[in-house]
Write a protein that binds this DNA or RNA. Sequence first.
DNA 1: TCTGGGGTCCTAGGACCC
DNA 2: TCTGGGGTCCTAGGACCC
Length: 394
Amino acid sequence: MGEPYFQVKEQLRREQVQVFSSNYTLYGDMSRRVMHYLGASMPGVEIYSIDEAFLDLGGLQQHLTPYLGDLDALARRLRAGVKARTGIPTCVGVAPTKTLAKLANRLAKKDPSLAGVLYLDSAERRAWALKQVAVGDVWGVGRQYAQKLTAAGIDSAADLARVSEAWARKHLGGVVGARLVRELQGFPCAGLAPSEDGTLHRQSISCSRTFGRPLRERDLVLGAVASFVGRAAEKLRRQGELAHVMTVFISKNRFGPDAGAAGGHSRSAVLTLPVPTSDTRELTARAGQLLARLWEPGAVYVKAGVVLAGLEPPGGQQLGLFETAVAAKRAPVEPRGSQLMATLDGLNERFGRGTVRLAAALGPKGGGPAPWQGQAAWRTPAYTTRLEDLLTVS
DNA sequence: TCTGGGGTCCTAGGACCC
DNA sequence: TCTGGGGTCCTAGGACCC
């Protein structure tokens, strides 16, 4: 997991392992189907990632008992429902906090005798579950913290649940660590953020790529940044929002002989836009200015990216103190641009991503693939979203 | 030779403001 | 000579998640 292909290539060949590029079009579509079913079945659903969701079972227990069985039975019905509708196997953990639910889910996945569902319905069962899980496998404990914790003699989730709040604050990133420990103890510290329309609502939207080859030419990097802006703005418009803040970053190689010391291989520049926008043209122009601030002549870059943040729905802009309603009428002039963007998005949806884009985001003059495009050499077909890719059965 | 992409949240220091 | 208290914003960085 997470190993670069070139490092394991020979072993994969020996073992005759099949290799595929990731296919987010397919995964995204299957995810949408699963989430749609969950959303239609349960009152509160938070889509946490492409393959995980939190369901709020608060207050459900009393309604369930006589007729429908307990929460365990409910979880098993949902699991069977997902499987029947999508063919996707899932596991369910039920507990008083998100962190414990994740932990229960993990155990359900590992122990086949649980048939995919674990309900931590008592203090005894929770204590048992905490003992089963290594501290590094707790949600919120990554490599750094795991190392620190085991060095301090804290090996299991049960050990971690026993540390003092002060200790957690001091050694596990402040308030984050304190919450983590409380959650393990069964006190909820994170609520549910339900997704109203069944899609994931983001605080920031980004697009970044490692280049197909290292680049030292400024116009090529600019082309890459322009194409990333185009993609990020497209996602932004899909979410129906405008961005107030844009970040551009460029990175040098962090591996190999001329890698800088720890850190320092990446530089970023941030801009707060006077007026929030989702217009690719405006964002591209600004991104060019940001890149100019970062550019070091002679440097060789391997990656670049764009982040759009400060997202807000249209029409929410505050008037400045001295702005009058008359001046504010400038805002509705936007629709010309929005309509152009809507047309752009419509064409690209119909004829394929990148069919129409700004000249700044085009590849090199001679044509051919742009040097900043990734190579997805072993992509599987988009079976469920492209007519041409439909599975054929003979 | 070749080392992913897209997110979240929090902290800290410095510049600057009143 | 002595130099407070309470903020915001920006930038950078660090940890984590899937």
